[in-house]
Computed example of a mutant assay.
Amino acid sequence: MLEVKGLVKRFQKQLAVDQLDARLEGGEVVGLLGPNGAGKSTTIKCIVGLLRKDAGEIYIGGHDHLSLEAKRLFAYIPETPNVYDLLTIDDHLKFIAQAYSLTHWQPYAEELLEAYDLLDKRDKLGRDLSKGMRQKVSICCALLHDPQVLFFDEPMIGLDPKAIRQTKLIFKQLKEKGKTILVSTHLIDSVEHIADRVMIMKAGKVVHNDTVASLREQYSGDALSSLEDLFLELTKDA
């Protein structure tokens, strides 16, 4: 569902993403990990079209990532959720429904609001929402049109423990439906038990791309090693 070939992104003289290749299949959850400045958010922003790439090819569902066909297939949940100050939570969902020409969307919207404890807050304006509530609204809006590919950039930041647990459950449900999910995060334990594999970035490159079990076998020899331990070992300076 997602194919990235030779992605390059520069900011003036700084090479932020260096010849990155990636391929994600349907029904796959992939964790995108790396220290600050590794290029994770830049990579996702290039994929979804928020940043102009300097080189490379990106395809979503076989379509160029900037095409209308590709944009219908994916949803993007940014690290810093943006909501409209003068729209209520309900208005945000209605806006998404109209933008995607959705029909019979209300029952699913109700399910999402209930899952994230927003039913009694549906009339709150965007300007009155906390960061955590904005994140919940952002996730609900992203899921409403039933995308095939989802890009999450630090989805757990600002969420309370119940919402984090709910988001992990949603990841599992989406995977079972054959959706493709790329999750960029610093909260490594949030993807350890849901990711089919992890891509670890360092200095703009993917330095490791494998299952957690395989990385444990290759680099620690300890089946009980946490993903956090592996990450710190694999990204430490030589």
Rank of each mutant, 00 (worst) to 15 (best):
M1N: 02
L2I: 05
K5S: 03
L7C: 08
L7D: 07
K9L: 04
K9T: 09
V17T: 14
A22E: 00
A22K: 01
G26F: 00
V29T: 01
G34W: 00
N36P: 01
A38P: 04
K40Q: 00
I44M: 11
K45M: 11
C46S: 10
I47W: 02
V48F: 07
L50C: 13
L51R: 11
L51V: 12
K53G: 07
E57C: 04
Y59W: 04
I60R: 07
H65A: 13
A70Y: 09
P78Q: 08
E79T: 07
P81W: 08
V83W: 08
L86A: 13
D90K: 10
L93D: 04
L93V: 09
A97Y: 03
S101L: 05
S101Q: 06
H104V: 09
W105M: 01
Q106K: 10
P107R: 02
K124L: 09
M133Y: 08
V137Q: 14
S138Y: 04
C140D: 14
L143H: 03
L144I: 11
H145I: 06
P147M: 12
Q148A: 13
F151A: 10
F151I: 07
F152G: 08
P161N: 07
K168I: 09
I170P: 00
F171G: 05
Q173P: 04
T180A: 09
S184Q: 06
T185H: 05
H186I: 02
V191Y: 08
I194P: 06
A195L: 10
V207N: 10
Q218P: 13
S220N: 13
D222F: 15
A223G: 15
S226V: 05
L227Q: 10
L227A: 11
L227E: 01
D229Y: 09
L230K: 11
L230S: 13
K236Q: 05
K236G: 02
K236M: 04
